[in-house]
Simulated assay, not measured.
Amino acid sequence: MDIHIEKKIYEFLNINVSNMSSDWIAQAYTSGTGIYAESKDSEAYQQISSMNKEFIIALTDSLFGKETSLNEWSSSLASNRSHTGTPLYDVIVNSSIFRSIYYSYIESFIEEYENEVSGKMVINWVRTISRKFDEAIQLVTKKYMDEYEYIFSSQQETILELGTPVIKIDKHIGIIPLVGEIDTYRAAKILESSLNKASEMELEWIILDLSGVPVIDTMVANQIFQLKETFRLLDISMIITGMRPEIAQTSISLGLDFSRMKTFAHLYQAIHYLHSSQSINDS
């Protein structure tokens, strides 16, 4: 009897895959951003429907001993939602909405075959469905956060890269104009990217302009000193401009000797100095 009724519900759920997906899409929640905010007749929702149907089939198979892995499905869904800027909250809410819809179809089947369905069978179905839904949302959440952290990290790297330009002002002179707060991580990225760029540009002089930097702590001051020393190994001389008195004091307290490095209060003074030096050398 159990095998007979389980075959019937298995067929019933598979027959209604499209209906369940349509019901869910009709009720899909959106906070106003991301893929769920698209028009319901858009290509985006066709993709949503396709992925939802895959999940329904996997879920239904697992109800009757055909255990399926949701790893690949979860990775695909998480990647899509994170890359479309869909809030994780929307993903979780819509999972809850679909869970209710799936249960409603189970309920409809039970009402139709109430004389053939035992309480034990219902409990087993509910337990399996809950476990599979929980597994799916846990996998999606983890993979979504992994994707989000990767995207965020990549964006941060791009921002740092763009925020640390080496501007070539003539054949052998470049400027690194720093703006905003400099922490230890950003200082390290400046060290890495500016060295590469300066070397590629075949510069002889680098002007590190600190006039747009409000505060520098001891660790960052040390990084600047290291940057100067590393440039020296590449046969590139570094000049610092815009160094505030408090930054100079921080450097002195660290025992960092910037006295052997050219420093100027203003950027134009450094450029004038270098151009004057070049003119003398050329003559």
Rank of each mutant, 00 (worst) to 15 (best):
Y29L: 03
I57M: 02
A44Q: 13
S95Q: 06
H83M: 10
R81Q: 09
E67S: 13
A78S: 06
L59H: 03
L88R: 04
S49V: 07
T84A: 04
T60F: 10
E107L: 13
L70G: 09
Y103V: 15
G32P: 04
S100Y: 13
Y105S: 02
S76F: 00
I106L: 15
I56T: 11
S100G: 10
F55M: 11
T86R: 00
S39P: 00
I92H: 00
S79P: 00
Q47A: 12
K66Q: 13
G34P: 01
I101L: 05
I35S: 01
T86N: 04
T86L: 04
I97K: 00
S49R: 14
N52G: 11
F64R: 10
G34H: 03
G85L: 08
A78W: 04
V93H: 05
K40A: 09
A37F: 02
S104V: 07
I35G: 01
S39V: 10
S75N: 14
I35D: 01
N52C: 10
S69R: 07
Y45Q: 02
A28Q: 06
I48Q: 05
I101H: 05
G34D: 01
N80A: 08
A58Y: 15
A44F: 10
T60S: 14
A26T: 09
N71A: 09
S39H: 09
G32E: 03
A44M: 09
N94R: 10
V91K: 00
N80D: 06
F55Q: 10
A58G: 11
A26Q: 06
N52E: 06
L70Q: 06
D90A: 09
I106M: 12
S49E: 12
H83K: 15
S100L: 11
Y36L: 05
T84P: 11
Y105K: 00
M51N: 13
M51R: 12
T30D: 05
R99C: 08
K53E: 12
S31Q: 10
F109K: 10
S31L: 08
L70S: 06
S50E: 11
S50C: 07
A26R: 12
E72A: 10
P87E: 03
I97W: 06
V93R: 08
S74T: 14
Y36H: 07
P87M: 00
G32H: 03
L88Q: 04
L70T: 04
G85F: 12
Y103Q: 14
